[in-house]
Computed example of a mutant assay.
Amino acid sequence: MVKSLVDTPQISPIPSRKLWMAAIKLPMYSVAIVPIATGTAVAYRDTGAINWAVFATFLAAAIVILVWENLCNDVFDAETGIDIHKAHSVVNLTGKKNLILAIANICLLMGIGGVLAISWLQQDAVVVSLVALCCLLGYMYQGPPFRLGYQGWGEILCFFAFGPLGVSAAYYSQTQSWSIGSLAAAVVVGIITSLILFCSHFNQVEDDLAAGKRSPVVRLGTKRASQLLPWVCAVIYAVTIVAIALQFFPIWTAIVLVSLPIAWKLCTFIGDHHEQSEMLLNCRFIAVALHFVVGSCLSVSLIF
């Protein structure tokens, strides 16, 4: 049986400030921002108006809900021992698993409270229902007894939570309606968000195997998984081009093509070093950069 991280803390020579910066993962919070910004941008294109109070409230709620998910993942991973070599786990840094879980749950309540306020003001339960479903998927990813991420379902859960559900919730919060355009945008956002999670598995294959986690990279092997990356990136651009052709997106959305060098860097870097886990520790941040640039270009093009 794999021993718990809390029982066997690992001492890292890396300065604690750098570990805390890695634990906080500030760049990763674009994952919360992009779906809200994109859904709101599609709504602006359709209606010509933005309710800034709703947007700001939803954005703040999304960020604290992501804090909840990240902290909970550290807690649940500590229970399985999969993070035994992860010095920047918040649980490893503090040694206070119960406190971290309590803080995480407070963040969840704050986030749900913000979204509930939007639904209450609009007298419509759709938005809070969609966000509650996103939270359920987030819990099922790592939380017991589900732990679906350990069965290789993490990327699929991520796609729906941050794509169709997240973007659609942001769109609905502005319009109280639905659109095919928002769904097309949601597919793009969902894929690039899942790509971040997919890339994060390359540097932890040994730990995943030891803990019984069957991530897609473990199942496919690092070589085949790296060969899949260009196809996933191609789908992002293909969906965008088709959506432009069908006039779901304006022609200006073609500016997402400026992200092609980042996609190329991501695919070639992982392809060249797929067996060198120590070199792939930060490859997820290349995926985060791709996520941010594609999401920003998509949102800006829809507004302007």
Rank of each mutant, 00 (worst) to 15 (best):
I192G: 02
I106F: 08
W120V: 13
H201G: 06
L165K: 05
A60C: 12
N98E: 15
L290P: 05
D46H: 13
W52K: 03
N51L: 04
L195C: 06
R147D: 07
N282L: 15
A102Q: 04
W231D: 08
F248I: 10
L116F: 13
V300N: 04
G295C: 08
A211H: 01
L121V: 12
L101Y: 12
Y44R: 00
L157G: 01
T57F: 08
L220A: 12
L116D: 01
T222F: 07
K25C: 10
P250W: 05
D208C: 08
I236G: 06
G271W: 06
A62F: 02
V242L: 11
P145W: 00
W20E: 07
G39W: 10
F248G: 03
G81V: 02
V126S: 04
A22K: 10
W68G: 11
R214V: 11
V242I: 14
W231M: 11
I84T: 06
R147E: 11
S226Q: 05
A132V: 12
I103Y: 13
Q247M: 15
D77N: 02
G48E: 00
D207T: 11
A49M: 12
C107Y: 09
Q123R: 13
T222H: 13
R17D: 12
I262Y: 05
M21C: 15
A170N: 04
F202Q: 01
C283L: 06
Q151E: 15
C199A: 15
M110H: 06
L281N: 13
L157W: 03
Y141L: 00
P13A: 09
V293N: 07
G111K: 05
V64R: 05
L302P: 02
V31Y: 12
L59C: 11
A169E: 07
T40Q: 00
V67Y: 08
D124P: 08
A102N: 09
W153E: 11
T80Q: 09
L101K: 13
D207P: 02
G154I: 00
A104F: 09
A238N: 00
V294I: 14
T94F: 04
I251N: 15
V127G: 00
E79Q: 15
E206Y: 07
S277M: 14
A169T: 03
L280M: 09
D207N: 10
G111D: 05
E278L: 06
S277V: 10
R219T: 14
V128S: 12
A102E: 11
A238M: 09
I36D: 01
T253R: 09
R284E: 15
I84C: 10
S12N: 11
K96H: 14
H273I: 02
G81K: 08
G212L: 06
A170M: 03
A53I: 12
V205N: 09
V232I: 14
H201T: 05
A102W: 09
L280S: 06
Q227Y: 14
G39L: 08
S194R: 10
P216S: 01
